[in-house]
Computed example of a mutant assay.
Amino acid sequence: MGLLDGLRAVLGLRAEADAKRDAHPDDLFGMSTAYLTMEADLGYESMNEGALCFAGVDSRRFRDAVDEVEAILEAGREETGTDFSVTEDDHGYHWVILSDSDPEDLITSLHFAADTFIEHGYGSRLLAAVFGYEDHEGPAYWIYSFRRGAYYPFAPRSGRERDSSTEFTLEAALDGELELEREKEYWYPLWPSQSGRRPWE
């Protein structure tokens, strides 16, 4: 199974078939308190970045939905200061990438973007929302799988290695604060491209 097939299986069709409950964009607001725990209790600093991953559809109607997401984020940029861009990665997946030093604004903007896709009937195209943190040992991400309706930690290290100890520590620390994915087979790594530093690069 290749990387692309793996992503489709774990965050896509298989996850949808095995879903225990419907995903809801309001789940993203769980990060509003979780980031405080990450910073105050665990010593992580926010990267001030988050991203929404989705699978595209070759249709004008879907393009209109993406255009509306961009229009909403553009309208909110002056008020919240949240910068954004929309890109496609090496695997053919699309990302709405947001940057803001205020975590609340970042989370709210991600919620608006996800909710807009759902309102247009494209909730099934949403794959994941990603929130970035880092400490002296390296980056750590919280990934929300829309198909599973749950979060899981991802701590990538050089050489495409994962820091499992860090991931389990984060799981224990945020248990009860976030809706966590209990089945580890769904803790799928979102590796960046060879030249990228973030999962969406």
Rank of each mutant, 00 (worst) to 15 (best):
D175Q: 10
A19T: 13
I72T: 00
G76H: 08
Y186K: 09
V57E: 15
S165C: 11
Y44M: 03
L174V: 01
G2Y: 15
A19R: 15
D67C: 06
M47Q: 13
W95G: 01
E39W: 02
F154M: 08
V130C: 01
G123H: 08
P139I: 02
E78A: 12
D27R: 09
G30M: 08
A75H: 03
H136P: 03
F112K: 08
D90P: 00
G81P: 00
E79P: 02
M31R: 10
P103G: 02
D67T: 06
E74K: 04
S101I: 13
D26L: 14
D41I: 00
G123Y: 05
L98I: 10
D5S: 15
W191S: 02
E119D: 15
M1Q: 14
A173M: 03
R157L: 01
Y133E: 03
F112R: 15
K184P: 01
A19F: 03
K20Q: 13
Y188K: 08
D89I: 08
A65I: 07
T80N: 05
T82Y: 02
E49P: 00
E68P: 01
S195R: 10
R148P: 05
T169K: 07
F154R: 00
S99Y: 08
D135Y: 04
L52H: 04
L170Q: 04
D41R: 05
L174T: 04
K20N: 14
T166V: 13
D102I: 13
Y35N: 13
W142G: 03
